[in-house]
Design a protein around this nucleic acid. Structure first.
Lengths: 338, 338
DNA sequence: TTGTAGGCGTTATCAT
DNA sequence: ATGATAACGCCTACAA
């Protein structure tokens, strides 16, 4: 097995020779450089030659010249990288490539120094952070030619260049849906964790905010153990202890499915006596009966927004930073459980 | 809100000036160029200067010079990009970055022309394909300086530079486990699809292969409709029609969970009267009772192998292509359902 | 042992 | 309207 010979590179110079013009002209034509008047005939000759030879501009040379690459760095969590995030990144890659940008994945969390290294090496034009970024990281980003940073906000305030995604709105959307269905005493069921994540907390507080308007000042919360038997036991006890609760919102469809099956065992009718709304639209949601009403992120909308922000930041040298942007991506999917 | 000023770039020349040597010496020291004898004192001065200034070699310039980048392109399916694949890519990114390579995600399927474009623009050093690649794509890869291609094999023969992953072995592992448990009449349960995928077919044939040795020449197959009610109906009927079946292997844990709950309703004891083995270790598997025995990919092993292959292909200019490689990554996770 | 010089492919400035 | 030419940062023969 031999390494095959590398075929010669088609450079701008080769195209220029083929078209009978200079390399500069090729560049002008191919980039539609403003302030140049190229006659249509020349233009055609260059375009034809480029197409015929299959010319592709070299990314490295271009980056070296303009001092910035076409790369958008995607910071992905090194743990808890969910199917939702993954779908988002894959789709974002498609969407960015349509505007001539490439997505380069980097696992996070990255220390500031490590990230700074990366930035100076590849000169990315933008950063998409699916993981929270610290202030000092953002500071190092600002000095290194990165034009735009869009990210997922955790708790706390949004930063400039950040787009908020998920968490809080999910809770509000769940609560709103239950209110619309006439419920004013709802409960929250989550997985028991040592330390509740920012998402957990955000979800709960959003729920509380919406329900407060409906006259419910406090929300009973159940932290479900991961062990199946203990989980069902806990659920059964909790449901018995909170007869005033007519609906529950859950952190994800897995717990929601558990709630439905426990209610079934207790003879509690769903959604008649207890409404259940899940989250993330897991496959299990369509397998249980009744099928789960759930909340999921409208990734299409989010990605369009991401791409548009990045695109305009790249295209316009004096792009006005948008300050804070909030994108509401939570969508309710109504099925049988509410 | 203003665009902050870009701080000046730390180039090799700057480091050279700081260290009081020439740019060439800096390059020699930083790259450990063989055949050069640099005194320790000079060496230290250069290293110190580089560290002090935070020097990072520019990827674009290096690529331009060397004619090849440090980028490994990852071809990801634009549909059916599962959590498993995503975890694989994220981890692979980490693992590659440890050897100085970057992962650049590209959505697939890409037509040959589109892929060829990409290759000529970024000059990747390797390609990791999570999606099957056609012969002509491989051909175009060979001519463009790509040093290695590792991929997921579908049906058919493995190609040189390809590493096989998943599918077939899953079926064999499931069957082997059930044989070990004493079953010699097993059934296969999958989701009903218009066109069975290569994975579906591979899984079934591997199952058949193993069971043939145990004296079972044919395997009853049930294609479960996605509608929940129809699904349970189909399962109940099928279980009644195949009393000889003492164990079932399923395509994933979602169907497996469904089998368990249907068996429960029919009064069939699991695993006493019916053993069930799922696949992919979905969260639902630990939520049902009995918890699901399942098969999952040992991604750690796979990624180590991917990285090692890529690393050596990149490091050694005359890397002997390994022909075909098969990595067995299927691992059984024994829980209560078998 | 270390420095000089040339070139990788592109784009931008300045002539023509 | 188009063509030389320089420069981006790095690597590496070759010269000193």
């Amino acid at each position: 097995m031999e390494q095959p010979p590398r075929r010669p590179r088609v450079t701008g110079a080769v195209v220029a020779r083929e078209a009978g013009v200079s390399a500069a002209t090729v560049s002008y034509v191919l980039n539609d450089t403003p302030g140049q008047s190229i006659p249509e005939s020349t233009r055609r000759r260059v375009l034809d030659a480029a197409a015929r030879l299959g010319y592709r501009p070299n990314a490295a040379a271009r980056s070296l010249r303009v001092g910035r690459s076409d790369v958008v760095v995607g910071l992905v969590p090194d743990t808890g990288y969910t199917a939702t995030f993954s779908a988002l990144m894959a789709t974002l890659a498609t969407s960015l490539s349509a505007v001539g940008l490439s997505l380069l994945l980097q696992p996070a969390p990255l220390g500031t120094s490590r990230l700074a290294e990366l930035l100076r090496t590849v000169d990315p034009v933008g950063v998409v952070a699916l993981t929270p970024v610290d202030d000092d990281v953002v500071a190092s980003l600002q000095g290194s030619g990165v034009r735009v940073v869009v990210g997922i906000a955790g708790t706390g305030d949004l930063r400039p260049w950040q787009v908020q995604f998920g968490s809080g709105e999910f809770g509000a959307t769940q609560a709103q849906h239950l209110r619309d269905r006439g419920h004013d005493r709802i409960g929250l069921v989550r997985w028991a964790r040592e330390h509740p994540s920012a998402t957990d907390l955000g979800r709960a507080s959003a729920l509380l905010r919406v329900m407060a308007d409906a006259g419910q000042a406090q929300i009973p919360v159940l932290d479900v153990p991961t062990d199946p038997d203990a989980a069902e036991q806990a659920l059964v006890t909790w449901l018995r202890d909170h007869p005033e609760v007519t609906a529950v919102a859950t952190m994800d469809d897995d717990v929601a499915a558990l709630v439905v099956s426990s209610a079934d065992r207790l003879g509690i009718a769903v959604p008649g006596s207890l409404a259940v709304v899940g989250a993330y639209d897991f496959p299990i949601g369509t397998l249980v009966r009744p099928a789960l009403t759930t909340v999921r992120a409208d990734l299409g909308a989010l990605i369009d927004r991401f791409t548009e922000i990045i695109r305009s930041a790249v295209a316009d040298p004096a792009w006005p930073l948008p300050g804070r942007i909030a994108v509401d991506t939570a969508r309710i999917v109504v099925r049988g459980s509410t």
